[in-house]
Computed example of a mutant assay.
Amino acid sequence: MSKTVAAKALSRSYAGERVLTFLVGLLALLGGALALVVGFGWLGEYRGRRPLLDPIALGWLGGHATPAKIAAIVLGVLLFVLGLRWALRSLRPEPRPDLDLDRTEGAELVVTAAAISGAVQADAEQLEGVSRARVRAVGSRTSPALRITLWLREGTDLKAVWAELDARVLTRARESLGLGSLPAAVRLELDTSPAKRVR
């Protein structure tokens, strides 16, 4: 399992958020760089000494007050709606994809995300040295992925568990679902041993 595959399984699909954040950051960086260039006087001493609110711009805004106010209100509402949509999209629960095995009309066959998770979890809990497991199916219908957490008993051979997980559990899941690849992010934890009573 490569780092790219694990990263795909670990990360939510934040492509839109990342692009928007990048663009906002880029605009802020360019604005700051422009302010520094003007402030240091690299565009001329006069521009560097002008007030922050340009008198020419203020004069133009005073002469066109109504259109400027309308444009500011529209821009403010637009930014508010985009920000609200962005926040709601970021806070929504991550989708759990069901997998379409057969899309033939009248004979559709869909495997739910819970069924996929339950089957992989049951297989993972059968591995020697694993005391319990938790599996979540994530991603999309077209490219599902798994997040697996395994709790290991003390003294477990980590390499053996890893090899068995890859060879038995994940291979079986891929073959059962008819997938060429099934990215998986695996987290291993040492299970806490029960507390011993002192008498």
Rank of each mutant, 00 (worst) to 15 (best):
M1K: 06
M1R: 07
M1T: 10
T4N: 09
V5C: 04
V5K: 05
A7G: 04
A7P: 03
A7N: 07
A9S: 01
L10Y: 01
L10N: 02
G16Y: 08
G16L: 09
R18I: 01
F22S: 04
L23I: 00
L23Y: 00
V24K: 00
L27E: 05
A28S: 01
L29W: 00
A33L: 06
A33D: 00
L34T: 07
A35C: 04
V38S: 07
V38M: 10
V38R: 10
G39N: 03
G39W: 00
L43T: 08
L43C: 04
G44T: 01
Y46K: 05
R47N: 11
R47K: 10
G48Y: 00
P51I: 01
P51V: 02
P51S: 03
L52R: 11
L52T: 09
D54C: 07
I56F: 10
I56H: 09
A57M: 15
L58S: 09
L58H: 07
G63P: 02
G63Y: 00
G63Q: 08
H64Y: 11
A65M: 09
T66W: 14
P67R: 12
K69I: 13
A71G: 13
A72D: 10
A72Y: 06
I73P: 04
I73T: 08
I73E: 11
L75K: 04
L75E: 04
G76A: 15
L78H: 14
L79C: 06
F80R: 02
G83Y: 01
L84Y: 02
W86P: 05
S90Y: 12
R96W: 03
D98Q: 09
D98F: 07
D100K: 14
D100H: 13
L101M: 13
R103G: 05
A107T: 10
V110I: 10
T112F: 01
A113I: 03
A113G: 03
A114E: 11
Q121P: 02
E125Q: 13
E128F: 15
E128T: 14
V130E: 10
S131G: 11
S131W: 02
R132M: 08
R132L: 06
V135G: 04
R136C: 01
R136S: 10
V138T: 08
V138F: 01
S140C: 10
R141A: 14
R141P: 10
T142A: 14
P144W: 00
A145I: 03
L150N: 01
R153Y: 11
T156V: 12
W162R: 15
A163S: 15
R168I: 11
V169T: 12
V169G: 08
V169Y: 13
L170H: 13
L170E: 11
T171F: 15
E175T: 13
E175H: 12
E175Q: 15
L177Y: 11
G178N: 05
G178H: 05
L179F: 02
L179E: 00
G180D: 14
R187Y: 02
R187C: 01
L190E: 15
D191T: 09
S193G: 13
S193A: 15
S193P: 12
P194K: 12
K196P: 12
K196E: 15
R197F: 00
V198E: 15
